[in-house]
């Protein structure tokens, strides 16, 4: 059974697109069939972060309007052939994203893939509502910072009331992905701690992605960080998050740069 996952946050710039790319690639690295779907009409960026910006021919709106078949719009990743991208339209009006059209696309993706990861636009408007509507599970991306936590709380409220699952009276599974976390600043008392954020938002923790230069380096070259720097701390954090998403029990840690010599040699060989 396919799982539809929305990666959402309310606030912009907290790492939704980066996280969608990294989690999508990490899921595909386990052998599952994965599609990442960009819902940010007019401001698409998942193609760029995935390094597929020059391969976009058709987009989701073309599919919805019947100008292209879904298989024509899907872009297969060059590194992992079980990973695909469905781009958003960069030129069309976001109103072209009809709720019926989105429902059809998601239903068709459910048949072709094990995981459908929907990268939500920022905000709480139509695009964000459509991205979350069909989700079985939500990943709420949050920075340890007041405005991000507040917006995440708002998004959690919407997930509990506006999604198809909520409308059927079911509970939507929600997980927190804490990004740009700096354990040193948190220990000093200058950044909200993991415990603070968890206490305020009270949803289970999927992973803690440490602040790292590797994230920017990965987007510079158009590669999910789990592929371009698989032993870096953020990549290990995303890989752990994916194992939890797949139901494994993985102890919660904040990966650091202190990797043993063996792991370093091994990591270099597989990289």
């Amino acid at each position: 059974m396919a799982k539809v996952v929305v990666v959402t946050s309310g606030k912009g710039g907290v790492g939704k697109t980066t996280s969608t790319a990294a989690l999508g690639a990490a899921l595909a690295q386990t052998g599952d069939r994965v599609v990442v779907v960009d819902f940010d009409v007019g401001l698409r960026n998942l193609d760029l972060v995935m390094g597929a910006e020059r391969r976009v021919v058709f987009d989701m709106i073309n599919v919805i309007q019947g100008d292209a078949k879904l298989t024509q719009a899907l872009i297969r990743d060059k590194r992992l052939d079980n990973l695909s991208l469905l781009p958003a339209s960069q030129t069309r009006d976001k109103d072209a994203l009809t709720s019926e059209g989105v429902a059809n696309v998601i239903a068709e993706l459910r048949e072709k893939f094990d995981w459908v990861l929907c990268d939500s636009p920022a905000g709480i408007e139509r695009g964000a509502a459509l991205a979350m509507h069909h989700a079985d599970l939500a990943i709420v991306v949050t920075n340890p910072e007041v405005s991000s936590v507040r917006d995440s709380d708002r998004i959690i409220g919407l997930l509990d009331s506006k999604t198809a699952k909520a409308e059927r009276g079911e509970r939507i599974e929600k997980h927190l992905l804490l990004t740009r976390y700096d354990p040193v600043r948190a220990a000093r008392g200058d950044m909200l701690s993991i415990e603070d954020v968890l206490e305020i938002l009270s949803i289970p923790l999927l992973g803690i992605i440490p602040e790292s230069q590797e994230v920017l380096r990965a987007s510079n070259v158009g590669s999910p960080v789990t592929l371009s720097a698989p032993i870096s701390p953020p990549a290990r954090a995303y890989l752990d998050a994916v194992r939890r998403l797949r139901g494994e029990e993985v102890p919660m840690t904040v990966p650091t740069d202190k990797v043993g010599l063996v792991a370093r040699l091994f990591g270099r060989r597989v990289a």
Partner: peptide, 15 residues
């Protein structure tokens, strides 16, 4: 002074 506790309290009241 550490500021994270101020952030936590402000958020708790606001939310």
């Amino acid at each position: 002074r550490p500021t994270a506790n101020v952030a936590r309290e402000r958020l708790q009241i606001l939310l």
